[in-house]
């Protein structure tokens, strides 16, 4: 098991190294002149030359890559052309906001309702629960997250004024004392009720928009898997020996249907790291997605590369956790 984890981490490191080559290629080789792009359309030749020197763009590509990658091992992702701060500092600031949004959204509005409704929908196959859940999960599949975000923001926040229009916390309210950098947890731990409520109000709409497609696919998959399990011999046996309905539902059906669903939840975590880019843009959520979009419009390549590598790391770790959870849910699975 430990050997398996170590081997997976080794491969993850190799993949991230490969990813750094790809992003380096994209940022330094694809643009004809990255310095001019970064300097903007009105920059004079001297300004471009200055940026070229400042960011080491005048050196051979191999040297530039070596400088970049050796920097990363020291925790130095270079400087952002746009914010003028070290990228590592920016990432440290925006990463917790994104992680909080994605995790909250995935757990509260994706996995929990998705699994619950999926199992119930299968258990009460063709009854009203099923007939209500099925269309919702089908409709959710194609729903553009950024458009849903915009609609919710315009209707519920702007028009009805029920929830905040954007941001992570109201203006004038200071952030709770930093422990985990997740506002919801920090405010709760420090007993700051006002900040907790405010942070909760801010996170609701972005996380619903982000979670809806995930909720739809988790529901659909759980339902389909649970239907398969319902017809399995061991469930029939359980019924036959007089086990109570609730016990069969949670002990047999849920447990077995959860194995493929876990993969789906892991995959969806990865997708949401992508989807959060649009949702953060709509809600002005100060996370990695908004940072990446602003970086992209400014040709701020160090920032884009930093975000890409950090999200790649999250993606890889999430996949590893999913594979390990497999073994917990299904003891028949062995790691080699």
């Amino acid at each position: 098991m430990l050997a398996y984890i170590v081997r997976r981490l080794f491969f993850l490191a190799l993949t991230l190294l490969g990813l750094s080559v790809v992003t380096f290629f994209i940022s330094r080789v694809v643009p004809s002149d990255p310095a001019r792009l970064a300097a903007g359309p009105y920059a004079t030749d001297e300004m471009v030359q200055k940026i070229r020197q400042e960011f080491g763009l005048d050196k051979p590509l191999a040297v530039q890559y070596w400088n970049y990658i050796s920097g990363i091992f020291r925790g130095d992702f270079g400087r952002s052309i746009r914010t003028r701060r070290p990228v590592s500092q920016d990432l440290g600031r925006f990463y917790p906001a994104t992680l909080e949004l994605v995790l909250f959204s995935l757990v509260v509005f994706g996995a929990i309702p998705g699994v619950t409704l999926g199992v119930l929908s299968a258990y009460y196959h063709d009854r009203w629960v099923d007939q209500l859940v099925r269309p919702i999960s089908i409709i959710g599949l194609g729903l553009p997250g950024f458009w849903l975000a915009l609609m919710l923001q315009s209707l519920i926040a702007s028009k009805l004024g029920l929830l905040p229009v954007g941001g992570r916390l109201s203006l004038g309210l200071s952030s709770p004392m930093s422990i985990t950098h997740f506002f919801l947890i920090d405010s709760l731990v420090t007993g700051n009720g006002r900040a907790f409520l405010d942070a909760l109000k801010h996170i609701l709409l972005p996380s619903i928009s982000l979670a809806f497609p995930a909720f739809a696919s988790i529901t659909r998959l759980t339902r389909a898997e649970a239907l398969d399990v319902l017809n399995a011999d061991y469930v029939r046996t359980a019924w036959a020996k007089g086990v109570s309905g609730r016990w069969v539902l949670w002990r047999h059906i849920l447990r077995n249907a959860l194995i493929p669903t876990t993969t789906m939840i892991g995959l969806r975590f990865g997708w949401m790291l992508g989807g959060t880019i649009m949702v953060e843009t709509v809600f002005n959520w100060p996370g990695l997605g908004l940072y990446a979009v602003q970086a992209a419009t400014f040709s701020d390549f160090n920032a884009i590369m930093g975000v890409t590598l950090l999200i790649g790391l999250n993606f890889g770790v999430a996949n590893l956790i999913v594979d390990l959870l497999y073994g917990v849910l299904d003891p028949r699975i062995r790691y080699e």
């Binding site: 993949t15 790809v22 994209i26 694809v30 790291l273 992508g274 990446a292 979009v293 970086a295 040709s299």
Partner: peptide, 25 residues
């Protein structure tokens, strides 16, 4: 397969944004 893994290691939309940033909108 290893090159494929690299491209699958991040959400496609993020990589696409990086590429558009390099090529221009």
């Amino acid at each position: 397969m290893r090159i494929t893994d690299i491209f699958l290691a991040v959400p496609g939309i993020l990589l696409a944004i990086a590429i558009v940033a390099a090529l221009g909108p």
